[in-house]
Amino acid sequence: MKNKIILLIIAAAIPAAFTGCATNAHYVQTGDKEQIISLGQINIQDYANAANAAVKELLESGAIDKVANPPALLEISRIVNNTGQQVDTDLLTKKISIALLQSGKALTKTVDKKATGYQQEAEFMNDQKTTRMPDFTLSGKIIETVDRAGNTRRTTYSFQLSLNDTKAGVQVWEGEKEIAKQGTRSSVGF
């Protein structure tokens, strides 16, 4: 009888132990508590946090409000990638341009060839120049620095952004967000 009870407990414990180890695929929210933190890589939440900080500072500064005909027209310029990995800078810049569009403070100059084609055709047909020069361009750089002490590694990603006034040729706003990650290996959860 006693042996039976012990066997039953063991039989129940084995599946429970296995369930605890395996994680079935499930949908998660971006930027949640379970996010994967990679030491040698920019994670999706890093782009979101860098964009969040940039938009917050940019809107707070009021730099984008100082245009003759609001909303301002913005063109996304070059974002230099100085990291050791392949980076799609749209992960950063698209979030910023969407947020600025949603704020009603800025429009972004289109990069769609069809749209510019139609616009040029309309200009030709009406014999009228309607192209608006961008008020600002947004440029920047992503820099990676790695420090090591024994097995511990610290990777810092610096997201540097500048808002350039196209008429005055000056930088009217600059922002930098540093995201640092430290550990011996990548992990799940903040």
């Binding site: 971006t30 930027g31 949640d32 508590k33 939440q45 979101a48 946090n49 964009a51 969040n52 938009v55 917050k56 979030k95 969407i98 947020a99 949603q102 903040f190």
Partner: peptide, 10 residues
């Protein structure tokens, strides 16, 4: 308000 920049900030 729908907001693209609504990330959880660590």
């Amino acid at each position: 308000v729908n907001n693209i920049i609504s990330a959880s900030v660590p």
